[in-house]
Design a protein around this nucleic acid. Structure first.
Lengths: 126, 126
DNA sequence: GCGATGATTCGATAATTCTGGAAATATCGT
DNA sequence: ACGATATTTCCAGAATTATCGAATCATCGC
């Protein structure tokens, strides 16, 4: 992974609606979720949702697959892991001892957490 | 960690110069790096560098500490780990079996990788 | 082929973010 | 207190990004 790709992926996730979409897809797992299902859960207008899905796709974070009339989206876990690795690459100059506290906290963790919230809708910034 | 914080952190990293700064600080480890040292390595004009450092700090990804005339910055590994956890939270609905391929790739990895490149300077977008 | 359903593209508008020079601030050594 | 060094703040211009209605495209069932 190079810096450019990483920036693109981070940028794709750095938006409330898109992060919610992505997390929904991470939760859904390999089976994925149809655009309609996402729209319903997140209450995002179709054109906006489409815009954000395209953005996530452009970044390579999710993939699309037609299923009859529906377009089913699913998280690309490879891409995410690549990003996570990139972020911690060469951590502490490779000095494992200095890095102890960092490595202590596992990055992939199953949470028992609650439902997803829809991102605050039609909220204007600032 | 909540969605808002995650978006802020991701947004802070979703910029070429800032990502380069952050990676430099990750590599530097707890000792950190002075603003001047960062500027020199990345060849970013002082005012721009300051802007980006402030952004990373606002997001809680790095911390600042005065050391005589220098301001020394260092990565906050707690914040990063929190973010990583958030991103993979409730992965595959908590079904470990479905998640096998995801968990297979460790997220924190020591790379033997080469030097950091400075972000393409004064490059205008599009 | 038609109407209905599911979703994307287009386009205009509005808001945010990045950039870097010049001026201001902080600290040090003398 | 002064000059030098290290960095930040202020500012305005330039570029990017988000929003969502209306129009369009794709697929299905009949």
């Amino acid at each position: 992974m190079n810096a450019g790709d990483a920036v693109e992926r981070l940028g794709a996730l750095a938006q409330e609606t898109r992060l919610a979409i992505y997390r929904l897809l991470v939760e859904a797992g390999p089976a994925g979720l149809a655009a309609g299902a996402i729209a319903e859960r997140l209450e995002v207008p179709p054109s906006s949702l489409s815009f954000h899905l395209a953005e996530l796709r452009r970044a390579g974070l999710i993939s699309q697959q037609r299923e009859s009339r529906s377009l089913v989206y699913s998280a690309d876990f490879r891409a995410m892991n690549g990003l996570l690795s990139y972020l911690s690459e060469n951590c502490c100059g490779g000095d494992r001892a200095a890095c102890a506290p960092v490595l202590a906290a596992p990055s992939i963790r199953q949470s028992k957490g609650g439902r997803h919230e829809a991102p605050a809708r039609t909220r204007r910034r600032r």
